[in-house]
């Protein structure tokens, strides 16, 4: 019961995002992969890449190669989300690390 309710809510919340990104097609999933790759590059430059980001990105490319564009798109979006979180973390730490220094 809880699960179904949550999936319904999640579906409603994700719907606009999926609509904006376009339905599953080779071109749309390739676009999602390219945009994830750009975020991943930024995260790497900040010395803060997450293992899960690269795992999702790898899965996206594998799905794309197999022609499963829906999966490729969702994995690429996961990779981009995780990369954005690590970029956000690294940016925040640029200011926050000094609070941890032994004085």
């Amino acid at each position: 019961m809880r699960k179904t309710a949550m999936m319904a809510v999640a579906a409603i919340m994700f719907a606009p995002l999926m609509a904006q990104a376009g339905g599953p097609s080779k071109a749309n999933s390739a676009k999602a992969i390219a945009s994830a790759a750009a975020r991943i590059k930024i995260a790497a430059g900040m010395n803060d890449q997450w293992l899960a980001t690269l795992a999702a990105f790898k899965a996206a490319n594998a799905a794309q190669a197999k022609g499963d564009f829906a999966l490729a798109q969702s994995k690429a979006m996961t990779a981009a989300t995780l990369a954005n979180l690590s970029i956000q973390q690294a940016s925040a730490q640029k200011k926050l690390w000094v609070n941890e220094v032994i004085k």
Partner: peptide
């Protein structure tokens, strides 16, 4: 801010369920 507990939800380690 001082905690070392990972942000399991925010950082997508665990799903809400």
């Amino acid at each position: 801010p001082q905690t070392v507990m990972p942000a399991f939800g925010k950082n997508h380690i665990l799903s809400p369920e």
